[in-house]
Write a protein that binds this DNA or RNA. Structure first.
Lengths: 239, 239
DNA sequence: ACTGATATTTATGAAGACAAATAACCCAAC
DNA sequence: GTTGGGTTATTTGTCTTCATAAATATCAGT
């Protein structure tokens, strides 16, 4: 799986490399969500000095994967339902606008590229008739291309540079290989159509509905599961 | 002028204090936009070690006031017209959504508080019949309260914690004490009304129009000024 | 046995020293 | 005069060490 994104330039310094390793460990849940981070411990584990580790921690803080309190230390963010819903709200706003801008600013080549990508995904989806690939990779790819298509550095940095990994973390932690694959495919298709038509208003509306639908899907699952038992996390959402 | 915002807890460590000082210096233009940052130089100037300064630089990077390249160094972001417009686009998306959420989530007390604030600003505006105060402080206060009213930690962190200072920087650098004060007041008033009516959809729409109007105002100024001469920055927008 | 204060330990914040990479400079050759 | 290579100098990245604040454990007193 492609773990890196084109926005963050590839790691050259050791702090960068360790950052990516810890990032991966957090996203995949190897370092559990909500746990305290021991600077001396992690530094020893990765065979680096504490100052280098702290440099890495700063990057992690930048993309909201850890939180720091002065004179106390760092914790991995804990994945709460509320946090997940708030993240979706934010995505709806940002990606909606990104989609509108994409409709205005994407080049014809970029649009053609996205259309072929969608076709590839379509075939792959039919072939595997499993849903995992499409949602896991294809969905992210789609959203990614739209965001980059906005040609808005501010939006790209915020979504791809910061929220992206948090989204992936929630996906992993909650085991969300959403069951909405086939519907999502249609929605993606219509969004691209709107972009191709250079209809920014429609493109934004469709993208927002697309994300809002995912959010409501989650809210429904919660409404079903939560009353019967008070378990709050893992496997709650999974189809 | 109130320089701090309620979201970032007050500085306890020296790195925090230096961070705030440099932040202020950048926002006010004392450290010119686009200039390279000398780590040894700044460390000496603030009488701290380089490692402490680097800690401060990391915070500055977090709120997009400086940019770092590996093995090369840090630069203050340069304020371009494109950057300003992109920032407005992003604000429109985020604050629009924040406004919608505020209409859903604000308590009655918070709403009443905002209404009295608006009245105070109204009187102050009439009294001074100058526009500076309202725009400089009142406008930010208004937007601030709306964002906090969303009760969405993600949105609050993104806008108040990160974009806020960048917005202030652009305001200072471009000398924008916008001439839209009276119109802005009416718009603010209608937005609060929509929030009080718990009409999220309308609240978002009005907020987006409010921000978009500012953006278009700037675009018009540019369209007027740019053809006649190629000067790109300072005083370009000022009424 | 339980509470509260003190002492010990541990972890974080800050400073200084070293190594590696980049940028600046100077001189030679075309 | 301009271009290319090599050397010097500066800057950044990393490590080590010290100081300070928080957390824990210990012990006395009730």
């Amino acid at each position: 799986m492609k773990t890196n994104n084109p926005t963050q330039q590839q790691a050259v310094t050791t702090a960068d490399k360790v950052f990516e390793q810890i990032q991966h460990a957090i996203v995949e849940g190897e370092i559990p969500s909500g746990s305290k981070i021991s600077e001396p411990g992690l530094a020893k584990h990765y065979q680096i000095s504490r100052s280098t580790l702290r440099e890495a921690l700063n990057r992690l803080e930048k993309c909201h994967l850890i939180e720091r309190k002065a004179n106390v230390g760092s914790r991995v963010v804990d994945c709460s339902i509320e946090g997940l819903l708030e993240l979706y709200i934010t995505r709806e706003a940002l990606e909606g606008m990104a989609c509108r801008q994409a409709a205005l600013n994407m080049s014809d080549e970029e649009i053609a590229d996205m259309q072929t990508m969608l076709n590839v995904h379509s075939q792959t989806q039919e072939l595997k008739d499993g849903v995992a690939y499409y949602q896991e990779e294809g969905d992210l790819d789609f959203h990614y291309k739209v965001i980059l298509g906005s040609h808005n550095k501010q939006l790209i940095e915020l979504i791809c540079g910061q929220l992206y990994h948090l989204i992936r973390m929630y996906r992993c932690q909650f085991g969300m290989n959403s069951p909405r694959a086939s519907r999502a495919f249609d929605e993606h298709s219509r969004i691209i159509q709107a972009i191709a038509d250079r209809d920014g208003e429609l493109a934004e509306m469709l993208m927002r509905r697309h994300i809002a639908a995912s959010r409501k899907n989650i809210e429904n699952k919660i409404a079903q599961e939560l009353p019967q038992k008070e378990k709050t996390k893992v496997q709650l959402i999974k189809s």
